[in-house]
């Protein structure tokens, strides 16, 4: 832990609702405290230096995915980024590119994710709807349950979307988050959809066949999800439907 340093924050500021405001970088200085995270620093800055500073935090424990932003060139969760990680003491904060900007560091990831879920139907389509909750549940292979949970760990933080150049260029591209979720339901033995059904959703230019395997998703995912393998798996699966 570094103590006694003065940190310099360069923070993107812009309020799209203010008629005359223009995007700019503003510099702030703050004294570092032991164990300081970007979450702690931003709150201190807001309380002590500029009460209008906008950013989003909810769980502040790396669980909810609210606080993704670009920190010194890398999109990640701000709440669990320790300032001690930056030996020069200079930290540049930018909002995630590719999302509607609410103001400063706050972007509307929630709206994006909901629209994506509606578009790709990202929910379990049970094989049968008439289950009896009073009866014993259907068994599931324990290994399958464990595999599904691995993919369930996505927190919809938006990092993969912002780190994907393909997505930035093509607005309609579903991005890693969409494909990972499709892969999750495709693997779920309870889901009634077939490979053909999934093909209709992601077997196109906006889905697996539009992905250029740049792997910004894989390299920045704060949950270390296996994007590379899963998207490749989906691509093979979808390509199999060609023959």
């Amino acid at each position: 832990m570094t103590q006694g340093r003065t940190l310099t924050f360069n923070i993107f500021r812009y309020d799209p609702q203010e008629a005359n405001d223009k995007p700019k970088m503003v510099q702030y200085q703050i004294a570092e405290t032991p164990g300081m995270t970007v979450f702690i620093a931003l709150n201190k800055l807001r309380e002590e230096q500029d009460t209008s500073l906008q950013f989003d935090f909810v769980c502040r424990a790396g669980i909810c995915g609210s606080c993704a932003m670009v920190i010194n060139g890398f999109p990640t969760l701000a709440c669990r980024t320790l300032t001690a990680k930056y030996p020069k003491g200079e930290i540049t904060l930018m909002p995630l590119p590719g999302f509607e900007l609410i103001g400063d560091l706050s972007v509307n990831t929630g709206k994006f994710m909901r629209e994506l879920a509606e578009r790709l139907q990202l929910w379990l389509h049970p094989k049968s709807d008439d289950i009896d909750v009073h009866r014993l549940e259907d068994p599931m292979d324990p290994e399958e349950a464990a595999r599904l949970y691995e993919l369930e760990r996505c927190v919809e933080c938006g990092v993969c979307v912002s780190a994907c150049a393909t997505k930035q260029m093509r607005d309609t591209f579903v991005g890693a988050v969409g494909m990972m979720k499709i892969a999750r339901f495709e693997m779920d033995s309870r889901d009634g959809r077939t490979a053909e059904d999934f093909y209709h959703v992601i077997g196109n230019q906006d889905g697996v066949f539009g992905c250029m395997t740049l792997l910004g998703c894989q390299d920045n995912c704060p949950k270390d999800l296996p994007h590379m393998q899963q998207i490749a798996y989906l691509r093979r699966k979808m390509a199999m439907t060609l023959v």
Partner: peptide, 13 residues
């Protein structure tokens, strides 16, 4: 718990 199974929760087995 059983209802949530049908809504997609991958309970540990």
């Amino acid at each position: 718990v059983r209802e949530l199974t049908n809504w997609g929760v991958p309970w540990s087995r």
